[in-house]
Write a protein that binds this DNA or RNA. Structure first.
Lengths: 298, 298
DNA sequence: ATACTGCATATTATCGACAAAGAACATCAA
DNA sequence: TTGATGTTCTTTGTCGATAATATGCAGTAT
């Protein structure tokens, strides 16, 4: 099958949530912006909804006939794009399965294992190679460098360099910059989660991602901003499968974030730098501790 | 044609230079390491050389019959891999041709223009995207961000951060590290070129690449080392088509390099930092001046 | 025993093909 | 006249196929 229609299915599911019995759906172009897809896809969705007797569609009128039931939704796993599937499978293998440094990676084998064509796997590996975890031997296999302590150190070294620069730049933003309001709403979100930390500690990952991205943004430097993708993916998958002490770790980190945010608000470079250093070295320590003490792989 | 046999042709050409009439070529495995290809390719080469009456081949004996003539070589342009061809064509387009920021890039069109399949172009664009000059809109085109002053500034900002760190690390290398001997031989090469600068100023690019790579290496950080690829490709293509004041610029840069090298040899961080800063800000200035003063494109 | 050759097999790089998704243009309704 | 719809065309994402290249194994010469 030349192309999975995951864009269609995902948009269809999201469109189901817009249905309100008695009302009519908006115009096609409006649905396009709402769902973030092209008109072609919107029209496929509408046709499908007619088939399912969810709406009656006649030119401009798209009258909703009934509320969607659970059965109307496409199963979740059919809505993620091929590259997402490949990424998940691959990360699982190299972060969990015994993936020793030096191991060879075989495009064909990987493709067969995941059940996709080689092209998709190849493209994924090329994209993934910028994360510094694999190396290509042209005309031959890929070599896994492994998620080692060494890797974590190199990663966090650069991270600290970049984030210090970004944080200082952030502190220097004019007071009317939109980033400040975003920072304030993030601060509130932190406080909310902290108030119910025992039950909501898992929400920290998302806060972490949002805060750090917001800060990198202030650097105005695409290389710094892009580098954060590496941090994000590593932390995302690593902590997804490594939840030891998560409650404690996240609670501590939220407090550090709040300090960090306060420091930013002072606009004082020295204060920002100090708070930034504190948080980052604490993050580094957690990461290091979660890696097996001496061995290479995770 | 599923695969260009450029590996074969390139290795064949290089193998031609190993022929000495009267002698025998080494064993197959030895040729493999010598040429950097697999035994299969080596054996294809040997067969071809038999066809061309260049050698007589019988098991272990590969007696050279005659010296190769110009006509024995494959034309140079058939020896570069597809991705090299695509890279050159593409860089030419975006660094020379009127490539305004915001322009759309079309895989199919690019593929037709270069005369290759879409897959190769796609893979190239994915690999190239890490250089921060293009952005992908999934399910749609790529967007050219353009080789603008803004880009050059972001690039050199990170470069300076990284190289300062690397240079200081270099200064701290133990005296018996192999890097010091490499540095000394590089120094001599600089002096040699400088002595005949009027005729050899074009050799500076290679010296520049070698020196900076050697220094980044000392950081021991894959992200820093990999980042230099971006610098290298940008400088390589940019100055290849922009030779204004090259003699003067390169002469000056060689002197700065010599200072820089001396500073490294002192092992004193402050001296290194000062020389590094001097050279990098001078390099930044040259790059900026070679870009059109205000406009976006090159 | 070691290292090379001969042969068979596996993997990569590249292409063309095709459904899904996007984009362009003509037509039509308010 | 503006904006939505109907229609058509183009491009992307993915696959399978195939030559080029690499790799593994068995036999053979030193």
């Amino acid at each position: 099958m030349p192309k999975q229609n995951t864009v269609f299915k995902d948009a269809y599911n999201r469109c189901l949530r817009l249905l309100v019995v008695g009302e009519s759906l908006p115009s096609e172009p409006e649905l396009c912006t709402l769902l973030g897809v092209s008109r072609t896809t919107v029209r496929s969705i509408l046709s499908q909804m007619v088939e399912a007797s969810l709406i009656e569609w006649n030119k401009r009128s798209k009258a909703v006939q009934r509320s969607p039931t659970k059965a109307d939704f496409f199963p979740e796993h059919e809505t993620s794009s091929l590259s997402e599937v490949i990424e998940r499978t691959f990360m699982k293998r190299i972060l969990m399965g015994g993936a020793e440094p030096g191991m060879q990676i075989n495009e064909l084998e990987l493709a067969r294992e995941i059940g996709v064509g080689t092209t998709s796997v190849r493209e994924f590996l090329i994209r993934f190679s910028r994360f510094g975890l694999i190396d290509k031997r042209p005309n031959s296999h890929w070599v896994l460098k492994g998620f080692t302590r060494q890797f974590a150190e190199e990663l966090t070294d650069v991270r600290e360099m970049f984030e210090l620069k970004s944080a200082v730049a952030f502190a220097g933003l004019p007071s009317d910059d939109a980033a400040w309001t975003e920072l304030e709403s993030l601060r509130r979100a932190h406080v909310e989660v902290l108030a119910d930390i025992d039950r909501r500690y898992l929400e920290f990952s998302e806060l972490d991602d949002r805060l750090h991205r917001l800060i990198q943004q202030a650097s105005g430097n695409r290389f710094i901003i892009d580098f954060y993708d590496i941090i994000a993916i590593v932390f995302h998958y690593h902590y997804q499968w490594n939840k030891a002490n998560a409650r404690e770790r996240n609670g501590k980190a939220i407090l550090e974030h709040l300090d960090y945010i306060e420091a930013l608000k002072t606009h004082r470079p020295e204060a920002v730098e100090a708070a930034c250093r504190r948080h980052l070295s604490s993050a580094r320590l957690s990461l290091m501790q979660s890696l097996s003490p001496t061995a290479g792989g995770i």
